[in-house]
Design a protein around this nucleic acid. Sequence first.
DNA 1: TATGAATGAGGCTTCATTCAT
DNA 2: AATGAATGAAGCCTCATTCAT
Lengths: 225, 225, 225, 225
Amino acid sequence: MTEANSSSTERIREKKRVFLAREQRIIDAALELFIDQRIDSVTVSKIASRAGIGKGTVYKHFLTKNEILMRIMLDYEKQLSTNLAAGIRKAEAGAPGAAARAYFESRLARPELDRLVQQLEVRLADAQDVAVQLEELHRTRRSNEASLSQMLTKQIERGVLEDVPTHYHYLACWALAQGAVELCFNKSWNYRLDTEKLMEFITGIGMTMGNTGQYRADRGDPSDD
Amino acid sequence: MTEANSSSTERIREKKRVFLAREQRIIDAALELFIDQRIDSVTVSKIASRAGIGKGTVYKHFLTKNEILMRIMLDYEKQLSTNLAAGIRKAEAGAPGAAARAYFESRLARPELDRLVQQLEVRLADAQDVAVQLEELHRTRRSNEASLSQMLTKQIERGVLEDVPTHYHYLACWALAQGAVELCFNKSWNYRLDTEKLMEFITGIGMTMGNTGQYRADRGDPSDD
Amino acid sequence: MTEANSSSTERIREKKRVFLAREQRIIDAALELFIDQRIDSVTVSKIASRAGIGKGTVYKHFLTKNEILMRIMLDYEKQLSTNLAAGIRKAEAGAPGAAARAYFESRLARPELDRLVQQLEVRLADAQDVAVQLEELHRTRRSNEASLSQMLTKQIERGVLEDVPTHYHYLACWALAQGAVELCFNKSWNYRLDTEKLMEFITGIGMTMGNTGQYRADRGDPSDD
Amino acid sequence: MTEANSSSTERIREKKRVFLAREQRIIDAALELFIDQRIDSVTVSKIASRAGIGKGTVYKHFLTKNEILMRIMLDYEKQLSTNLAAGIRKAEAGAPGAAARAYFESRLARPELDRLVQQLEVRLADAQDVAVQLEELHRTRRSNEASLSQMLTKQIERGVLEDVPTHYHYLACWALAQGAVELCFNKSWNYRLDTEKLMEFITGIGMTMGNTGQYRADRGDPSDD
DNA sequence: TATGAATGAGGCTTCATTCAT
DNA sequence: AATGAATGAAGCCTCATTCAT
């Protein structure tokens, strides 16, 4: 019996594993398509076909097309959140600017993905389905604010940062990162080929923006951290 | 005959005037709708109806729907370009940061419009029709680069700005402005109500970003300029 | 100018006429299909194709498929209501049973249509679109109740009908007519070929049901009325 | 061996019992769902899930979804048939109207179920699968006609009923019952709350419809029979 | 010249049924 | 034997664009 049980349990686990793997295949297929082509030219049919499954199967995993988009956003946000948290810890351990650096590097690591998520968010803004999940996403995002504020308050007290509401600092960061990502793809400018150095320059700005100027934050080689 | 000629000429002119006025009405109607509601819920029908004309008439003015979007972008870009040029002149007349300020203020004057144009650009990126016009738009944009570079080079020589390629400076500006606009509408953050002050703070950053720190750029009351 | 005006007016009228004619063609096509085959095997595509127009055109006339069904119901109900009203007038003019006869004859004139409407009603019962129109239909129906009640009250006072709430009488009528229609199509029974006489028999019952028995209502030749 | 055999037989029987019990669970689940919600919103999935089994298992019991519907109809018809037979026996034992009463009471006992069966029948009318079973259902129904006719003939001879073909009498009954059931659910009328009394009134009509008027059939307390 | 009715490709979603495990 | 993931046909609806009047 024990053997039978364990084998049955294992089979169930195996099934779950396969199921989740297929779900990931759908996500991956969607991602590839979204990055390859215009968002609204990506249809459920194309996603299914690229994932190598039938159209109907997609709906075993996601209730609506929007849920696929949502899932991509949530996955991305989770990763970003983790990286930011690590950066905040470093910053509190005495490396001012580490949080900003972590944030920028995380978002600029795969700018095409970051940009995709930005665009998905616009598209899902008014979607009735996934409205709940979207609100949850926003809440998740805001949940980082507390620790950010705490860290920034300390730096303001130490005179490193300008004495403005803490959210001025991190929202400015958000904005610059957002724009930096967009910059990577803007047809007007991307004929420039030194994107990497440019992004480093911008990251540097992100790390020192709002500084009082009494101290210069470390803008040395990123590999320092 | 002369009279007849002139009256005929006038009649033609009048016709042209009416025609152009209607074209503007179409653009205005489209703009209002785009800002009011989700971009892809704006149909040619709605535009025509709000402009007070028939759907078919729209196609006497624009070959495709995309051309309307294109036109909105071009009009906006032209205005922005004018404002920036004025800023550059001021900057060369001895007000470092004036160009950046002009740029930020121009884009942040009607952030909803700026954002709309950003989104339209994404949407038109791969459109086959209007591809030519899009390229023209990009060229227009780049045409400011020469004067910007000239101005920035001077500031670098004077030691005001970091000695990096000039486009680093203005692209960072572009990015921050881009993100600032997006910030105004992001659902995660816009529960903040002091948008105006925040935008001022960011404008200040935009004006000093990339500064060497030897000099502090004017960040005083905007009305100073 | 007058001529121009009148010709323009006429042209507009002509257009309206053509438009309405096409609308009727859609209704007719739908009706034919609904009567020919199972209700849910009738698709918008089929309707359009039988009406000789494109699928999209249907949606110029009706917002949803359900609105087509609704329209069929409303048209039918209007006719029925008119006929019933005439019957009530006759009854009040001294022909007891005339109302019931009018009602039965109206519904049994085209039983396949009456049955279709019954089925459509079931199908539309929970439809979110057309919910308003459905409620209106119900109100229209009920609006006949007042005059029916008045007439029946008189007959009760004269001792012709049993002294029960007036709606017992007309609802019983409704039920019998409803069932009679269904009877015409029931596969278990319709091997009988004397449908006409059977319906006459049932109409007779409808006219006398609820009678006290003191008087025998006229059940003679229908052409008497 | 005998023991082994008997135990094996028992095991087979047990299996059969379990199998049939599950089949009943499927039927019951389907019934509950059909009565709860719109017919076409009931899917095989829902049925299986409410029956507490897997979707695939349903297809071990029924070849198609339609067969489930068919089974519901057959079960219902069987019950109705039994009740009617009892009524006929009573009528022949001297209680004219007992058959009609039995029929009405049987159908009006659970009008929602009766109505469901009516609707299922419409839906299955042209189904290719179950066509055979449907024909069988019709035959079952008709099989009552012989005894009904016999009984009615006697009553016609006794002058109780009008001298028309016997099927006129029972088909009129069928029609009234059919309509009465529909009446219970019609949205236009069901704001009335005295359904029970109304149904009694209609049952009374059903019992006397087609009577010559020389005798008044018993319309007293139902519990008399 | 202005119009708007007509079009139909194409998008999303549902669900009865199959079949490998 | 029981399961439920996979399938894909088919339905409804939208909307940019055309063209006859």
